[in-house]
Design a protein around this nucleic acid. Structure first.
Lengths: 168, 168
DNA sequence: TATTGTTATACTCTATAACTATA
DNA sequence: TATAGTTATAGAGTATAACAATA
């Protein structure tokens, strides 16, 4: 009766035997489905590698942007990452609570908040990027090496780029 | 100022001018970030094209699998699609409520439910696949043609494939 | 004992409306 | 009037635990 090596959950997937036998039909040609599966695999590896750092992809992304763009406004960071500014509030709240980032008032505009990486935040980011390097290397290996990996990133960039549409 | 052509929302993104100026740093080399942006673009196009059919990607996927595999058990379909069987219940519930799919008892096992596409479900699926064809064509064009698109699908398949890892 | 389908539940992510204080 | 940050809220998607009926 199909024991797994990991996952003691009672709601585990049944035998893996028949899942490969399912005919996915046109679904296998779908970009959305392929992206979903790829993202699930990447998210799984991310979760495993960053478990001890207690950091989520969006938090990592914020810290990463703050390093390259200190003093950016909240709204600028949020939309650069594709996160609505309304959902960005609790995100930066937690980073600030953990002492990894901070909001500073900007002299010219009393409404705005400029974001900065703290020293502990920068130290954490160093560690995160080192882990991320190994994380990326796993998938570079899966796709067949650095060149194929670079090709994949370029293709994904095209997918996300509206300006490449026929009408402009 | 700064009026958009669409989106009357009050929570819209501010000027698009400065978002391109943000330095994403190492984030731009991240597979997870690239996948996120690509998936957002694909989801946006999907939502626009399938709006009138009132169908979500997961529902489309179920109908698609049922055509190629009539009589499959609920759990088999759900795990073939990477959906937990517990979350699959309300999904198939709604498809059945809308008369697009149906559960039938299987003779040998009184616990199991075999899933089938109904005639209206098959008719809808025909329409959906026609829309999906145009949907896919948009992104094939974005990445530079059918060959590049096929290459992208193959690379994404590698990303999702654990068996390609060094250790096996 | 294990499996199938199910319910209940919780947590994250995302989306919209509306408020405040500024500009 | 418009913008920056915020709050509240609702909807998806996803996760685990536990149950009844059946194997």
């Amino acid at each position: 009766m199909m024991q797994h090596d990991e996952e003691p959950s009672a709601n585990e997937a049944p035998a893996d035997a028949w899942v490969g036998a399912v005919d996915l039909g046109k679904l296998a040609e779908g970009l959305g489905f392929a992206l979903r599966r790829a993202q699930a695999a990447v998210a799984e590896d991310f979760a495993a590698r960053f478990k001890d750092e207690d950091i989520r992809p969006s938090q990592f992304a914020v810290l990463s942007v703050l390093r390259g763009n200190p003093g950016l406004r909240q709204t600028q960071v949020s939309f650069a990452l594709g996160i609505q500014r309304t959902n960005f509030v609790p995100l930066i709240d937690e980073l600030e609570r953990r002492g990894l980032a901070e909001r500073r008032r900007v002299p010219g505009d009393r409404r705005a908040a400029a974001l900065f990486l703290t020293k502990p935040g920068a130290a954490l980011l160093d560690r995160l990027e080192s882990i991320a390097h190994a994380h990326g290397a796993r998938f570079a290996a899966r796709v067949g090496g650095p060149d194929a990996f670079a090709r994949l990133l370029r293709l994904l960039g095209c997918v996300a780029d509206r300006t490449l549409d026929p009408e402009g």
